[in-house]
Nucleic acid binder design. Structure first.
Lengths: 255, 255
DNA sequence: CTGGTCAGTTGACGGAGGTCAACTGACAGC
DNA sequence: GCTGTCAGTTGACCTCCGTCAACTGACCAG
């Protein structure tokens, strides 16, 4: 996989937040240099994960948050019947595991989509540091809040958008995140399967497949298995919006 | 409206967490008596809201979290096109406003569904207290985490359940929350409109209306405008599960 | 190379739920 | 009382997307 080439060489990383290329993306953002070192000391290295490896499962005791350093993961919940719902795909710089704070055990599962490396933040140690560094505490709250906001977007997408709008929105947001990671945002390398994409959007795989084909016919995308080139970002953006439809979702007093 | 009868007489409340009937439900849960008093001092009274009044709008500067004391609210997001997606209905004891932590401004709107009273927790003061009382800090993180978990349930419901299962799940969870509030959990008084319920579930109002009728025919419910009596809780529970269907959402390795 | 497996694509078909329309009843203003 | 408005219900119709099935191609083991 070439997808890790844009990320730092692992041997450089040596569990050091202050030298981490993702510095601006995760917890340390907005933290001073000395506080960064204190945070640094709480970070424990985590073995890298291979595709399909599980970082934590539903029911696991909560003892750490995790930062994606390279690669990507999916997180999902399952009901009693075994139905799965993918909640998010996680790219480098993102922190996961917040769902476990409520009950001290995880209520979702996180699984690597490709070879990935992970920073572990043992929560007990993290709490010590946050209690001494208020800025870090605030930053941590901000990060959870971002997750809440992101889920609002997911809900809006699932509840109010048509299938094609959903897929367009999904690709658009992936491109935006690539850009923040300084990657080429016009050439996406999808580490997740079509099944995963379909599940994430509340659709079935055949629908997603047809939509990829349709958007290729429209000249918006060039699709080649895992590789998606965005030929017309402008068109992709316009496909995200529902044109005219769904008066039921509009507010009388909107505008 | 009789629905406020089960809630404390407002005149008793006098912005005091230690005497609040909702004590076990919101922030103070698990906090000692003396720390409770410190929290108490940060709470500011908030005028009550009438039906349709807005607590905060999208774009408002963030300066406080809010606790529902009596009544109920809905929170929702809107996209550029004006489409609305309801995120949650909020009952007494619930804390709202966490979405604003990320960017220091609200990215959703909260609106009263009936006459409601609200506790305001000015965030600046709250931060002072949490920095001095680590237990409160932990409790606050737990509360946000609960919101994350709740949204996972909402996503699972929208993505993987059929319309009837969704409505059953919605009513079931409302009944559960009534129970925690010591209300009669078999007689729900729906403060939200059919439109709101439909929007929350990603459906249209006609579908919700038909489902209420169907569930009444089945003998599960007795529906009379805003009042819903659950005649057969066992049947309602069984309607929440998808029977057999949707192999696409099942995991190979499940079980 | 051959055969098996699995991800993904494409077509044909059907149904759950959306759309449109008509109607009812509660409630407020006059 | 009458009238207008708006929430909610019900019916008729249609469409988007799910289901089922067949097929293709990548990849791996032998």
């Amino acid at each position: 996989m070439e997808s890790t080439a844009t990320v730092l060489d692992l041997s450089q990383l040596r569990r050091s937040c202050s030298s981490c290329a993702l510095q601006e993306l995760c917890l340390p953002a907005g933290i001073g240099a000395d506080d960064l070192n204190r945070l640094d000391a709480t970070v424990k290295d985590k073995r890298s994960l291979d595709r399909g490896n599980v970082l934590y499962r539903d029911g696991d005791r909560f003892d750490a948050l995790y930062v994606v350093r390279s690669g990507s993961l999916k997180s999902f919940v399952q009901n009693e019947a075994g139905d799965m719902q993918i909640l998010a795909f996680h790219l480098p710089g993102e922190i996961i595991g917040f769902d476990a704070l409520a009950s001290n055990q995880h209520v979702s599962q996180a699984e690597a989509l490709e070879r990935s490396s992970i920073c572990e933040l043992p929560y007990a140690k993290l709490q010590q540091v946050t209690s001494e560094v208020p800025a870090l505490h605030r930053q941590l709250m901000r990060v959870i809040s971002r997750e809440v906001v992101e889920e609002h977007r997911h809900l809006m997408m699932m509840g109010r958008q048509q299938a094609q709008e959903q897929l367009a929105t999904f690709l658009k947001s992936l491109a935006d995140r690539y850009q923040r990671l300084q990657r080429d945002s016009t050439t996406l390398t999808l580490s997740m399967s079509r099944y995963d994409i379909a599940n994430y959007l509340g659709l079935v795989v055949e629908t997603v497949s047809r939509l990829f084909s349709r958007m290729e016919e429209m000249g918006v995308l060039e699709v080649n298995r895992k590789s998606v080139r965005i030929l017309r970002p402008d068109l992709l953006t316009s496909l995200c919006r529902s044109e005219g439809g769904n008066a039921a979702a509009k507010r009388k007093d909107a505008g």
